[in-house]
Amino acid sequence: MLLRQGEPAAPPVAGPAHRLKAGTRGDGRLAAAFLAPALIGFGLFYLYPALRGAWYSMTDWNLLSRPRFVGLDNYARLLHDPLFWNALKVTGGYVVLNLGIQLVAGLGLAALLHRLTRSLVLRSLLVVPWLVPNVTTGLLWMWLLDADLGFLNHLLTGAGLPAQGFLTSPDLALPSVAVITSWSGTGYTALLLYAGMLLVPRHVYEAAALDGSGEIRTFFRVTLPLMRPILAFVLVVSLIDSFQLFDAVAVTTKGGPVNATRVIYHYIYEQAFTHFKMGYASALALSLVLVLGVLTFVQMRLLRASTSDLA
């Protein structure tokens, strides 16, 4: 009677039950066999490169000659590098735009789904853009936003408005990139938020309706406040995600025009593989680790501060 997979699932065992018990025999050899591949992979491609990256960040190295130790020079340089600060500013601007669009549109979509339909087909269709490879998304929108022949400019000129160089104007490039990534991410965000809305019990809505509260009032007074935990979760996950924007920029604007879309990830990439400043790029990358570390810390605090009001 080895296989009993049809059995109904018992409630999950709580955490401490699987602690190492004193006196019980360990599973050392089996564990070693099961963990060996993962440990090799982790050591070679996570731990070792992390240590190497930290070392490179203290060298001057062009990938060809031998790395030359320069101490903290790269970090000193970074503090006085206007392009680094520009990259942080651009990244921040992008994060605000991207999160703004995705949260507002995602919430609206989630609310519509929640009130109108349980259709799986509609939900699947909404996540299709999220599944499209980033490069493809970039290419597609480069074409849609093309200054001469793009579909969007066709719509604009059809409405009697002047055509725009969406990706070539310094003012429009960053918002355009945010629109592109929002196109690909909003359906996904909406689904996350929709799942959060499903957790709000029906009787809460019934009570609101009995009190004569309308749709919109219920949404702002009941649904939104009860969704605080999931909102916090979505906010921080997309925040950290947005900080790592690369593909869309690399395809559409390559950081231009005049650094208007030179986000931090692209700046690091450019230092490393266009200018072959491996040491400086590593210092930049390590600084990004620190920035994201701070954000993650804030995330933890935020998540803890927002325990559900439903409990």
Partner: peptide, 8 residues
Amino acid sequence: PPIFTLLP
């Protein structure tokens, strides 16, 4: 973040 291990 992946870029940190990507370079090495």
